[in-house]
Amino acid sequence: MNFYAIGAIYRAEMARTGRTLLQSVASPVISTALYFVVFGAVIGQRMESIAGVDYGAFIIPGLAMMTLLTQSLTNAAFGIYMPRFLGTIYEVLAAPVSSLEIVIGYVGAAATKTVILGLLIMITARFFVDYQIDHPFWMMGFLILTAVAFSLFGFIIGIWAEGFEQLQLIPLLIVMPLAFLGGSFYSIKMLPEFWQTVTLFNPVVYLISGFRWSFYSTADVPVGLSLAMTAGFLVLCLLVVSWIFRSGYRLKS
């Protein structure tokens, strides 16, 4: 293992976040906090509680998850797309590093940022809404698992994308709607039966449900299923990434 190389990539990526604190940390924390204020603190007081949880508190795990999904995607996608765009990727390809080391460096950094961002969002939420975390260990587990899986997904997008537009396409046009409709603001049990079934095809439902369970011990789908779906998605991304490096897709001709 070329640990120096992993360290170099990881540090360079974390330094990039450091240079763009406003964009990569402050902006998502603030925009999520606005949701907490409007839907949680203001509107939430007039809403019925769901499964015994105050509405303001109920939406916190889902909202946090929604931001984390899009953020880890864009973060990781930019992380690998920028060197491709600038041409500096040549150095990584010519370096004595294996594809695994490259992925650990880039995806590790993106996932780290996501976890930090997630914790910041939850701390901020505490200022506006009262909530508890029943299973802190599982909460961290879901957080890290999701961060790694979606950073991997973002890495794939960053290698696939051939322009800045494509880079934003999946986070904004697919993941964002899936997160909105995946039970961020409601329990899917509130939906008509037909739509409940349709919703089960939305993978984000499992992420949000599992994450929410770690807060309030209440879930739309069994926790084990949530965990399995998240881990399954991670494995799928890993397979795609390993194919990318084997074939040299979009990296080597």
């Binding site: 070329n2 120096y4 190389a5 170099a8 990539i9 370096a95 004595p96 590093v97």
Partner: peptide, 12 residues
């Protein structure tokens, strides 16, 4: 930073 990065990347 960029020069130090290269050194690390190449395993030194």
């Amino acid at each position: 930073s960029t020069v130090s990065f290269s050194r690390g990347l190449f395993g030194k």
